[in-house]
């Protein structure tokens, strides 16, 4: 296709992405380097019969004027990044000096909002992704063994947790694990502890969120792997059988290698989606015990006191995190592509 035709075909799509994905990223970087204007304070002296007392008031008009003149706020350099709510360099250095060991340093680090959010986001991504792949593969192998007639309805039901809106899905589970809900009651009965509540401790909240992540992630992995299983060549399996491979060995040495690219694909999509975890934390009302990078940004943007600079700084740090996550994939693709060309 000539360059000119290609250009006109791709233009609308590229324009949309440029304006609403690339520009916002630039805009976020600029915002993160600015900070909201300080309010203009005027000091007046009110004099009475007993002498004069100075009083301060916010000059609303001057503040508004200032905002209008420079809507971005004033230049702040890397100030927002280094502040307590983000990288907190001063606090981290202080914690490092005053800590007796790694454990105490870690616990001090977990009091800082950014590191707390980063820890949860990474834990969520690291726990949910492999579990989804393993369980998805297990379900796919199981469904593959089913009689043909039951496969359709099974796939239908399996799709539900994935298709449903994340917020809705997490709410449904949240109501069930409520201390008065059916799962909450069942857990109290199993552990024989009438006061047990999954919402109480950070650890239990984290586990609940991980469970939700796995529940909603399995269908995707399952469907992809199930489709992959349909394409595993029969001859290779038979050859392996003739060579005396057991069922497990056939899965290990024939099926799994054959589905290699699918594992990469599912892992990639899952990493991207788990890293942005937001809705479950809101659905489970778990902000007190668990926060992710996305909820930090969401919290800054919501409410009366919107903090653009803070949200923008966290956004930039998140984007850097995504970039680090994607680098291996991009490097690999680049190598493959070059090999193909040469």
């Amino acid at each position: 296709m000539p360059h000119r035709t290609f250009f006109w075909f791709i233009l609308p799509s590229a324009l949309a992405m440029l304006l609403f994905i690339a520009f916002p990223l630039v805009s976020v970087v600029i915002q993160s380097l600015h900070i909201e204007h300080e309010q203009v304070i005027i000091t007046t002296e009110s004099c009475g019969p007993f002498g004069c007392t100075p009083s301060t008031a916010v000059d609303l008009e001057a503040t508004a004027l200032l905002k209008e003149a420079a809507p971005l706020g004033q230049w702040n350099g890397l100030g927002t990044y280094l502040s307590r709510n983000h990288l907190a360099t001063a606090e981290v250095a202080e914690a490092w000096r005053s800590s007796t060991g790694l454990a105490s340093f870690g616990s001090k680090l977990m009091n800082l909002p950014f590191y707390k959010a980063l820890a949860f986001t990474m834990a969520y991504t690291a726990v949910v992704t492999p579990l989804v792949i393993l369980l998805g593969l297990a379900v796919a192998l199981g469904v593959n063994n089913l009689p043909k007639l039951t496969k359709g309805p099974t796939i239908f039901i399996s799709l539900l947790p994935m298709i449903v809106t994340p917020l809705v899905g997490s709410l449904i589970l949240y109501w069930m694990i409520d201390a008065d809900g059916i799962l909450g009651k069942a857990l109290q009965w199993v552990f024989d502890d009438p006061a047990l509540s999954l919402k109480a401790s950070p650890l239990l909240t984290w586990l609940t969120l991980f469970t939700y992540g796995v529940w909603s992630g399995i269908p995707f992995a399952f469907v992809v792997f199930y489709a992959g299983l349909q394409g595993v060549p029969e001859e290779t399996l038979e050859a392996a059988m003739i060579d005396g491979a057991s069922r497990w060995e056939r899965i290990r040495y024939v099926v799994v290698p054959y589905m290699g690219p699918l594992f990469v694909f599912v892992a990639l999509i899952q990493l991207m989606d788990n890293f942005r975890v937001l809705e479950p934390i809101i659905g489970f009302s778990a902000q007190a015990n668990a926060s992710s990078l996305s909820t930090e940004i969401y919290g800054d943007l919501l409410g009366d006191n919107v903090q653009y600079a803070s949200a923008a700084a966290t956004s930039v740090l998140t984007v850097i995190g995504v970039a680090i996550l994607l680098t291996p994939v991009l490097v690999r693709t680049w190598r493959d592509f070059n090999r193909k060309v040469v």
């Binding site: 916002p24 942005r276 943007l301 956004s315």
Partner: peptide, 14 residues
């Protein structure tokens, strides 16, 4: 595709 939507939204608002 990998960009978390919330980071984009924080770029839109201002």
């Amino acid at each position: 595709r990998a960009m978390p939507h919330i980071t984009l939204v924080s770029g839109y608002l201002v």
